[in-house]
Design a protein around this nucleic acid. Sequence first.
DNA 1: CCGGATCCTAGAAGATACTG
DNA 2: CAGTATCTTCTAGGATCCGG
Lengths: 120, 120
Amino acid sequence: MTVSLSSLRGDGDAFTDGCPTRVVLDHVTSKWGVLVLAALADGTLRWSELRRAVDGISEKMLASTLKTLERDGIVERVAHPVIPPHVDYSLTDRGRDLMEAMSPLLLWVAANADDIVPSG
Amino acid sequence: MTVSLSSLRGDGDAFTDGCPTRVVLDHVTSKWGVLVLAALADGTLRWSELRRAVDGISEKMLASTLKTLERDGIVERVAHPVIPPHVDYSLTDRGRDLMEAMSPLLLWVAANADDIVPSG
DNA sequence: CCGGATCCTAGAAGATACTG
DNA sequence: CAGTATCTTCTAGGATCCGG
């Protein structure tokens, strides 16, 4: 029985509608959130690098995903006042902590995806 | 620097649009998927118990979430041919393996949610 | 009690064009 | 280069009714 997930139950937990846990869980496990975080796990990237790293993301989604993660204190945005603009994104300490917790999941998915989805 | 997530890059990885990794990641990190899986991590539950365990889920979403996870070989469905109907849901071996990989994330979210989302 | 089938809407997400 | 603004499209999700 792995780690005691039952400890999640009881008070303000993920099983209660509208609690902070649900909100953060949604941010962190959102379609693009996971991929952006995984891309930043390797280190600082700038906007255009992120766009290329996360294949298929639109500018709109990249912007809103980054904004949400920044508000949550998971991603840090550093804008350099130069022409042309140069903006760096990286994980905060909290973000790095999060990625340590999330990497087992990402590795599991990478290892099992081909068994689960037959051809495509 | 935690686990090497950069190993995820390269061939058929989560950063490539349309690959199996993306599909499985979406199933597993879906809004309700996470919560259903977490509920089942404690053991077998029947339909009505799941509905109560995952606060706020609609019957439609519970049905479709379970069906997706069942197709992926993560959740097992056992229907007992009695009146009134009795259907049990539980994790498969693969599902338990998945939950071992996911529990650090869930614990992190539970531990950090209140810091991230101020009041609600 | 356990869902399937149907209808419908809000918000997610894509495409494109434009600006400091 | 790094976004914002706008418009459209799409689908996750909710509500309801029904059937085994």
